[in-house]
């Protein structure tokens, strides 16, 4: 990633000045709350800063909306994950509950994995989780999902490949 040059910084400032307020309003309408909207608008510009060449953006509004949508989806996903996590935590015996410090580590890792597995077909994701989280063997997974062993292997390969490929972007 090239260091933002002076010209690029000027470009970003200009973009921020003319687009930040409508973007924040747009996000507020989507979210129904202004604090999160402000955060996500901020994140959108951060993404631009570390992203591509700003001078190459022809239609800033369309481009900003697209980036903001991606951030919004990611944010929804994080909320859904945290909610499911809290649900799971609520039924866990007290002495099994992680400390606040451990919560943070677990949630961060869960979010990373969640993002990697996003958009995998449901049975593929499920086979992968049964194997990698529950520690089930492939033949047991085949029985559980009602598919053949060879299908489970194909699912596993597909999920591993998607993770490895997407880690390119994350790392």
């Amino acid at each position: 990633m090239p260091d933002p040059s002076f010209a690029a910084q000027q470009e970003l400032h200009a973009l921020y000045a003319s687009h930040h307020s409508w973007l924040r309003d747009w996000l507020r309408k989507k979210l129904g709350n202004s604090a999160d909207a402000a955060d996500l608008a901020h994140d959108t510009f951060i993404r631009l800063m570390v992203g591509r060449d700003l001078t190459a953006i022809n239609e800033p509004r369309a481009y900003l909306t697209r980036v903001a949508k991606g951030i919004l989806i990611n944010w929804y996903q994080r909320q859904a994950l945290e909610r499911a996590y809290l649900d799971a935590l609520a039924v866990l015996p007290e002495q099994k509950a992680p400390s606040p410090e451990q919560h943070h580590l677990i949630l961060e890792t869960l979010h990373e994995i969640d993002t990697l597995l996003d958009r995998l077909p449901r049975p593929v994701k499920r086979a992968f989780l049964l194997s990698q989280i529950e520690g089930m063997k492939y033949d047991a997974i085949a029985t559980e999902l009602g598919v053949s062993l060879i299908t489970v292997k194909r699912y596993m390969k597909q999920a591993f490949l998607q993770c490895l490929t997407l880690m390119e972007v994350q790392v």
Partner: peptide, 28 residues
Amino acid sequence: GLPPLLAMPSLDRPSNPARRAAIGKLAL
């Protein structure tokens, strides 16, 4: 490094667009 009792329900949650929309309201 993920404990199954927490990881499984979190990652294997149902995901549908209607639910996603509802989640927005949960933000508060």
